[in-house]
Amino acid sequence: MSVRVDFTPMVDMNMLLITFFMLCTTMIKSQTLQISLPSNDKVDKTEQNKVKESEAITVILDSDVDGKGKPTMNYVYYYTGMPDLAADGAGNLTNNKMKEVKFDAGEASQNFPMKVRAILQQRNDQVLQKINKLKADYRAKKLTDEQYQAQAKVVRNDDNLKRPVVIIKATPRASFMSLVSALDEMQINSISRYQVDNMNMSDSAMIKSYWQKRLATHK
């Protein structure tokens, strides 16, 4: 007596179930970007760690928005050290240190010869050189993953190297994407000291003055 069972309906059912699971699952998982904000607590003047002027870079993010508040165009500005607020009689800044730059996306143009990444790389050169050496060792299998991570961390936080302090500021209109791109640049360029801060009066004044000048020269 044959005991063969027809498996066709079984296969049908299994296929249906597979289809269901394939449609309902997410294979790609989101990534996370860790950030830590400065504490809100008031810090004593004496305990404050002042950033050296020569090390500070301020990156300001801004966007154009359409009627619904959706960003249409993202801008990035930067200046190094302290803002220079010397103004002429009409209130225009005479020595505006702020320059406009672009994130890496898109071609370098005449207006923006430097990208944010290039600027940061230049500033963080000493750290990056060491990191690249470590990376080469890692690729050549001389270091394990953990060794590489540990040594890279030491290099990133090495006080003997010249490292920049990046202050990221964003206007209320700036898109969230710009902020993430800026934080991303910190990771790419192995910058360990950066913080997200609020805009202040001099930042707004510099942006305003920058645009006045730019619009005047384009006329």
């Binding site: 790609i28 990534q31 996370t32 970007l33 860790q34 950030i35 830590s36 904000l37 504490s39 993430v180």
Partner: peptide, 14 residues
């Protein structure tokens, strides 16, 4: 920040 939770993560795609 007001709640003194200064560390958190932002979700991004790869």
């Amino acid at each position: 920040q007001t709640l003194k939770m200064n560390k958190f993560t932002l979700m991004t795609a790869l």
